[in-house]
């Protein structure tokens, strides 16, 4: 069994309506997704806004209410576990998108990073301080900065503080929700390199949620593509980028701007072809509601959402 296994996960949000605000319908933010993460690897979850990728991440860690399905972590069921003191909360941590709003501006770095330690471990003041300084060193910040406040740091440094907080309890899995989307390219490079380094050092598993396909390709071993709450395709980075099978994936990959200005005409033609194919084949790849079918394996690692044969 896998390291983290998600089975038929569903997260539905109620829509309130009518005069009495009763639930009239549901938004199926996540509508039956299954996947598993391998230890020490990086799993990428890609999709456009509204695809349900962030909701999936948040549901695993217990920030969203799970409507249906199961989540197993190291063979233990953790579906909907919310108890603050449980080990699962210690083993799975999250890094958020916006380094500007995810750190409490009124707290010192020491308090921010030590917060999870205080929740789970009984350390003396001095031990705590030493641990925080070690952690800051690990993320490449000077140990003297423990008494500073978040606004004294740049965006990249803040994201490192967020990472220091996330790794404080030596977690096994980190769910990173768009960790570099708010950062400039050169800062983004710092954070990505650094995430790779600590992955090796601490034997971490990442679930990397992003809409940026360049970043996903750079970071991930296995990739899942989401659309309207369902998976349309899953495979290794090479399979997804070199040999996309689902029409949605094809269109998504084709839309990435090419870094070579000489290929402009070629890309334009290619995109036009893919778009025509997308329009023509839309009904073959999506059901009447415009949703993806369930995944069918086409090789050992490559799964595509195709309709039942016949």
């Amino acid at each position: 069994m896998g390291f983290l296994k998600v089975e038929d996960l569903k997260v539905h949000f109620p829509i309130k309506g009518g005069i009495f605000g009763r639930t009239v319908d549901h938004v199926k933010a996540v509508d039956g997704v299954s996947f598993s993460l391998e230890k020490g690897k990086t799993y990428g979850l890609v999709g456009e806004s509204g695809s349900g990728k962030s909701t999936t991440g948040r549901a695993i860690i217990g920030l969203n209410h799970i409507t249906g399905g199961n989540v197993f972590f190291e063979d233990k069921e953790i579906t909907g576990v919310r108890k603050a003191k449980s080990d699962i909360r210690k083993d799975i941590q999250m890094i958020f998108q916006d380094p500007y709003s995810s750190l409490n501006p009124k707290k010192r770095v020491l308090d921010i990073v030590a917060e999870p330690l205080r929740n789970f471990e009984n350390l003396s003041r001095k031990e705590e301080r030493v641990r925080v300084q070690e952690l800051l060193e690990l993320v490449g910040l000077s140990p003297e900065s423990i008494l500073k406040y978040p606004h004294e740091f740049s965006g990249g440094q803040r994201q490192r503080i967020g990472v220091a907080r996330a790794v404080a309890l030596k977690p096994k899995l980190i769910i990173a929700d768009e960790p570099v989307s708010a950062l400039d390219v050169s800062v983004q490079a710092q954070v990505l390199n650094f995430m790779n380094e600590i992955q090796k050092e601490l034997d971490l598993t990442y679930m990397f949620i992003s809409h940026d396909l360049g970043v996903i390709k750079h970071m991930c071993d296995q990739i899942g593509i989401m659309y309207k709450g369902r998976f349309v395709e899953e495979g290794t980075a090479t399979e997804i980028f070199e040999n996309p099978q689902h029409i949605y994936t094809k269109r998504l990959v084709a839309a990435i701007p090419d870094i070579d200005p000489r290929k402009r005409e070629e890309m334009k033609k290619f995109r036009a072809e893919v778009n025509t194919e997308y329009e023509q084949a839309y009904n073959d790849y999506f059901n009447e509601e415009g949703l993806a079918y369930s995944l069918k394996p086409i090789s050992e690692t490559h799964l595509v959402a195709l309709p039942e044969k016949g």
């Binding site: 983004q188 490079a189 990505l192 360049g214 390709k217 750079h218 980028f241 990959v253």
Partner: peptide, 15 residues
């Protein structure tokens, strides 16, 4: 320093 979807890089350059 830009990760590129078209070709693989081991490590990104950091300014």
């Amino acid at each position: 320093s830009v990760p590129n979807a078209k070709e693989a890089q081991d490590r990104l350059h950091v300014i």
